[in-house]
């Protein structure tokens, strides 16, 4: 079998059905979220000895990026830097960069965050997701000396304000995805990590990821529909 992730997909698929029934996909559902734990998004932490812990972020990184956007707030930027720069550096080193190149690129990525804060859309990507996409692009540029053509941007319309409800809903879905990833058996998790940090080619990636992506996809789709509606 070339597809070792496969069996887990079904297991997690069931989990998804139990835990991820989302009320907001029904058109007439009340615009209220299930209780949202803390201000930050819950993320999994590194597992030691197979045990799984989920911890709450201490800061709401979305809010800090919006403070950078709206107020060019260097204090907020410094907090983002302290949190994300070491993780970006770790990601780049895991992807094969030397410590000095990773250090330099991590600074570049954080400077890009400052420059592009006005393009950040918290209804479509969590802060960590957005930072990941910037770091990924820097890696392709610096390590592979290649390009990654991007889809056409969907810019903010005249009402350039992310919907608070959509923002929270996406944060909640991201937290659920993090929990699901923390529950993946070590072998499956290692495969997903290799797909992102290693060099697993597209033909080596299993057709079934083993992760419940349906609800977060629906959230982002809804946010896209709203954006298209505003643009038209």
């Amino acid at each position: 079998m070339r597809d070792p992730i496969h069996g887990v997909g079904r297991k997690l698929g069931m989990l998804q059905q139990i835990n991820h029934q989302s009320a907001f996909e029904k058109a007439d559902a009340p615009r209220r979220l299930t209780p949202y734990a803390g201000r930050g998004t819950a993320f999994m932490s590194r597992r030691k000895g197979g045990s799984v812990t989920v911890e709450d972020g201490q800061d709401d990184w979305n809010v800090l990026i919006l403070r950078v956007r709206d107020h060019r707030d260097k204090g907020a930027f410094a907090a983002l830097f302290r949190h994300f720069a070491p993780r970006i550096k770790g990601y780049l080193m895991k992807s094969g960069a030397s410590a000095s190149l990773a250090e330099e690129c991590a600074q570049d990525v954080m400077a890009t965050l400052w420059q592009k804060a006005h393009l950040y859309d918290p209804t479509r990507a969590s802060a960590a997701t957005w930072v990941f996409t910037i770091a990924r692009n820097r890696r392709i540029d610096a390590l592979r000396k290649s390009r990654r053509p991007e889809p056409e941007d969907l810019p903010w319309g005249p009402e350039a304000e992310p919907d608070q409800y959509d923002t929270l809903a996406l944060a909640e879905e991201t937290a659920k995805l993090a929990e699901a990833m923390a529950l993946l058996p070590d072998k499956q998790r290692a495969l997903v990590e290799r797909a992102y940090f290693g060099d697993l080619s597209h033909s080596e990636i299993a057709a079934e990821t083993g992760l419940p992506l349906g609800t977060i996809k629906s959230r982002i789709r809804l946010a896209l529909d709203r954006l298209r509606h505003k643009l038209s």
């Binding site: 990507a125 990924r136 991201t174 993090a178 990833m181 997903v192």
Partner: peptide, 10 residues
């Protein structure tokens, strides 16, 4: 978002 979670936990 998977990439974001991996970055956060990495």
């Amino acid at each position: 978002a998977i990439g974001g979670v991996l970055l956060e936990a990495g």
